[in-house]
C-alpha cells in the first residue's frame, strides 16, 4: 500500500523535502514507517526521528491523517494514509 509521509518544522529541513510517498507492506505500522524514512534519509533526519537506542523520539509529534498518534499506540496504517512527523517548535 502507499503512504504519504509529510515532514514539518526541523524534520522538513532535515529531510530536505516536504513529503515522501512510500510503498509499504500491509502489516506496516506507524513506527515501522518512521524507521523506514529515517533509514532512507540518513543521519540528519534519523537524529530528529529516533534516539540513539533506535526508539522513536518521545517529543516527536506524530499525526495519522488529522489525528495525533499517542506514544503507546502503534497505529495501523491503511492505503492512502498521510503520516505527518513534526519536531516540536518553540520560536517566540
Amino acid at each position: 500500500m502507499q503512504i504519504t509521509v509529510q515532514y514539518e518544522a526541523q524534520a522538513r529541513r532535515a529531510a530536505g523535502v516536504g513529503s515522501d510517498t512510500i510503498e509499504v507492506s500491509d502489516a506496516c505500522c506507524v513506527n515501522d514507517c518512521i524507521r523506514r524514512v529515517a533509514d532512507a534519509h540518513g543521519e540528519q533526519l534519523r537524529s530528529v526521528l529516533v534516539d540513539t537506542n533506535g526508539e522513536i523520539q518521545p517529543a516527536l509529534l506524530i499525526f495519522l491523517n488529522d489525528v495525533q498518534v499517542v506514544r503507546q499506540a502503534e497505529g495501523v496504517l491503511s492505503d492512502g494514509d498521510t503520516l505527518t512527523l513534526m519536531t516540536p517548535i518553540s520560536g517566540g
Binding site: 537524529s47 518521545p58 517529543a59 506514544r71 519536531t87 516540536p88 517548535i89 520560536g91
Partner: peptide, 16 residues
Amino acid sequence: CLYPKVPPVWRREFPV
C-alpha cells in the same frame, strides 16, 4: 501531554 520530555533538537536561535 504533547511533549513528555524536553525536545532534544530545539535551539534558542532560530530562523525567523
